[in-house]
Amino acid sequence: MSQELFVVAYEGDDDSGSLLDYAIARATKEGAALHIVHVLEWSPYSFLTPQEVEERHARRKEELARAKSAIIDPAIDKASAAGVTASGEMRYGQVVELIAEIATAKSAAMIFVGRSGSNSMAARVFGSVPLGLAQIAPVPTVIVP
């Protein structure tokens, strides 16, 4: 049987450390590989000024480079150092939809997501990432406090 894959919805902020640690620990125990995903929130229906439109392509390149060097690469390094096979990707769009989509596409066994932010008023009204995943996740999902 091929190796199981866990998808990690990784924000890369201060609270994400425990999420990554937990995912690494579980992957080690199960002999699974990790796929660390960082989503840059983006809507194709938002409004931009002409100046922002002009600079968008350049900004996107910068944002992707920054996310790779500051968020994804260190996370992959951390997992690799712990002996876990890890890959990563950055995507633009809605976090919940994309994580569910990637989990399906990669036939992942599980999704790991941080609880962060789900206490805020906005999260209660509009729904947070863990709440959204609870509704549409295609595979078992672990919410890490």
């Binding site: 229906y45 409004f47 931009l48 000024t49 002409p50 968008r56 996107r60 633009y92």
Partner: peptide, 17 residues
Amino acid sequence: SDPEDAGEVSHFQALAT
């Protein structure tokens, strides 16, 4: 729109601007 191009200026955004 190619999903790979997410994060770039979309047709909608160009029209709205």
